[in-house]
Each structure stands twice: as structure tokens, then as C-alpha cells.
């Protein structure tokens, strides 16, 4: 469904989104960006040997997942800027949730600002960011 700028209000929340961060999905991403052999992303055992709780989702995959969430909410929109802070690792095969909320609307540019977070099972924010999106 095409989303119209005039129907969006400050404070609107994007539908919460559960991304696929299974080991097979992360391996596919890692292959796609040329880090398929980096064990901390693709191998739980190797990641644990490096002191991590398990394999971790590459930061740029989290960023791409947030972009996909925005596209699902407003198909056809144009993301002008997406800024992500990789605050703490997200463990592969865990249950992460992506959230977004409209924090600014700019009628002259038909654009909105969105606060974005990815939280883990404990509700801790692991990745946060903002996006500027032309609707």
C-alpha cells in the first residue's frame, strides 16, 4: 500500500518487525558483502573463541534490515539518509525486534525523520539510528 505524506503524524509508530537473523541469513549476507569467511559473523564456536557470546550480526546488515523495515512501511519511499550506531552486538539466531517512530514531519520536503532501534530479547537497545525519508 502506497503511503501518503499527509496521512503520517508525528509520533506514528512503524509496525514492529522481527528480522531474519538466523545463521543461514547472516551467512548469506556475509557472502554478499565479502566477509563470508569471517568467523565472528558466521560461526558460533569461532565467535565464542573470540570472547563473544556467539556469532554476531554485521553492523551493516542491521543497517540494511532497518532500511528494509522502512520500505515495508512505506513502499516506494526514498531513504535520503540512514545513520546507525552499533551500540552493542546482536547475537545471530536470537530474537531481535526492529522499531521505528516518526519524530519530525517536513511538509515542504514531504519528508519525515524516524528514530530507529533494534532491541534484543532482554529489551536492550543494541542498534539505534535515525532516518530521513522522502515519502
Amino acid at each position: 500500500m502506497q503511503r501518503r505524506f499527509q496521512d503520517i503524524e508525528l509520533g506514528d509508530e512503524l509496525p514492529e518487525y522481527a528480522p531474519d537473523i538466523s545463521l543461514s541469513a547472516v551467512r548469506s549476507f556475509a557472502e554478499a558483502v565479502g566477509v563470508g569467511r569471517v568467523g565472528r559473523f558466521t560461526d558460533h564456536e569461532q565467535a565464542r573463541r573470540e570472547g563473544l557470546p556467539g556469532a554476531i550480526v554485521p553492523g551493516i546488515m542491521s543497517q540494511g534490515i532497518l532500511a528494509a523495515m522502512i520500505h515495508k512501511w512505506a513502499p516506494g519511499c526514498q531513504i535520503r539518509k540512514l545513520d546507525t550506531v552499533f551500540r552493542a552486538p546482536i547475537v545471530v539466531d536470537s530474537q531481535a525486534r526492529c522499531r521505528g517512530v516518526i519524530t519530525e514531519t517536513e511538509p515542504d520536503a514531504s519528508s519525515v525523520d524516524i528514530d530507529l532501534t533494534i532491541v534484543n530479547e532482554a529489551g536492550e537497545t543494541r542498534v539505534l539510528g535515525t532516518a530521513t525519508v522522502r515519502i
Binding site: P19, D20, A25, S28, F29, A32, I60, M61, Q63, G64, I65, A67, A68, M69, H71, K72, P75, G76, Q78, I79, L82
Partner: peptide, 23 residues
């Protein structure tokens, strides 16, 4: 696909506006 994009402009090469995702 690995990022979970489902819009044809990113997933279907025959789409007239086929392009890379923004990030």
C-alpha cells in the same frame, strides 16, 4: 534479499526502476 527487502525495485531485475538498496 539478505536484508529482507521485498520491494520489486530492489529484488526484481526486470523492474523498470531496479536499483541497489540505499545502504
Amino acid at each position: 534479499r539478505a536484508c529482507g527487502e521485498t520491494e520489486p525495485r530492489f529484488t526484481d531485475p526486470s523492474h523498470p526502476d531496479f536499483q541497489a538498496p540505499p545502504t
